[in-house]
Amino acid sequence: MAEPKKDDFLDDIEDAEAEAYAEDMAEIDDDAAELDALRAERDELKDRFMRALADAENARKRADKDRREAENYGGSKLARDMLPVYDNMKRALEAAGEQTEATAALIEGVELTMRELVNVFRKHGIEPISPAVGDKFDPNHHQAMFEAPVPGTKSGEIIQVAAEGFMLHDRLLRPAQVGVSSNPG
């Protein structure tokens, strides 16, 4: 038998090292690809988590806003239905005129009831809009019931107040009903 040559032995070692190196490099490439895939999956999951967190925060804020609005404005239908009661009691007091001994107790009872109604309104954030004759017409708070040219007034001035308006917190519940001057400039 022939003895292996030293060069052949070295070539075999080099080939084995090259193969091992190639395997190591392939393994490193596989590990790097797996690491890249894991990073991409992590980034995707992190993005989904952040979006879900933002959605949950938005839902919480929306629910909180809805709760506050329901608390502040939930009774607006009832409040609107109570305004004619206020108007009728006010008309009754204005029509009472002279008090006699017989009507004094009745008028006092209506006044006390009216005061209690106003206190309940205030307690629930309902404030009257009470324009005066001569004030400037504001379409955000007043409703023009008629226009008339009245001497001595400017166009857009209130010339008569037919009914008070009301605000519920920062929302208009009912505009004040007014007559407006239509005098030219």
Score class of each variant (00 low, 15 high):
residue 105 A to F: 14
residue 103 T to R: 02
residue 130 S to E: 15
residue 62 R to T: 12
residue 176 A to P: 08
residue 106 L to C: 02
residue 78 L to Y: 06
residue 150 V to I: 10
residue 56 A to R: 12
residue 1 M to K: 07
residue 159 I to G: 03
residue 24 D to A: 11
residue 7 D to I: 12
residue 179 G to V: 03
residue 33 A to Q: 04
residue 25 M to W: 01
residue 81 D to I: 05
residue 137 F to E: 03
residue 3 E to F: 10
residue 16 A to R: 14
residue 125 G to F: 00
residue 60 R to K: 12
residue 15 D to P: 01
residue 41 E to M: 06
residue 88 N to E: 03
residue 43 D to M: 14
residue 33 A to M: 07
residue 85 V to M: 05
residue 180 V to A: 00
residue 76 S to F: 04
residue 158 I to H: 05
residue 112 L to W: 04
residue 59 A to V: 02
residue 33 A to C: 02
residue 97 G to H: 04
residue 131 P to H: 05
residue 95 A to I: 00
residue 147 E to Y: 15
residue 176 A to L: 03
residue 28 I to A: 12
residue 140 N to W: 07
residue 119 N to P: 02
residue 136 K to V: 13
residue 136 K to L: 13
residue 185 G to F: 13
residue 175 P to I: 03
residue 118 V to Q: 13
residue 164 E to Q: 15
residue 142 H to P: 02
residue 31 D to Q: 11
residue 182 S to M: 03
residue 70 A to N: 11
residue 158 I to V: 12
residue 98 E to L: 06
residue 39 R to G: 03
residue 64 D to T: 10
residue 158 I to D: 03
residue 15 D to M: 12
residue 146 F to N: 10
residue 20 A to T: 08
residue 140 N to R: 15
residue 106 L to H: 11
residue 50 M to R: 10
residue 166 F to D: 01
residue 96 A to P: 02
residue 49 F to C: 10
residue 33 A to W: 00
residue 10 L to S: 09
residue 11 D to T: 14
residue 93 L to D: 01
residue 165 G to K: 04
residue 17 E to R: 09
residue 158 I to M: 06
residue 153 T to S: 06
residue 69 E to Q: 10
residue 9 F to E: 10
residue 81 D to S: 13
residue 22 A to K: 08
residue 74 G to F: 01
residue 1 M to N: 06
residue 88 N to Y: 02
residue 97 G to W: 02
residue 165 G to W: 01
residue 96 A to W: 00
residue 81 D to N: 14
residue 176 A to T: 02
residue 74 G to Y: 01
residue 48 R to D: 12
residue 143 Q to M: 07
residue 168 L to M: 11
residue 30 D to F: 01
residue 176 A to F: 02
residue 58 N to K: 05
residue 2 A to M: 07
residue 57 E to L: 00
residue 72 N to W: 15
residue 19 E to Y: 08
residue 8 D to W: 04
residue 143 Q to G: 02
residue 118 V to D: 04
residue 65 K to E: 04
residue 152 G to Y: 07
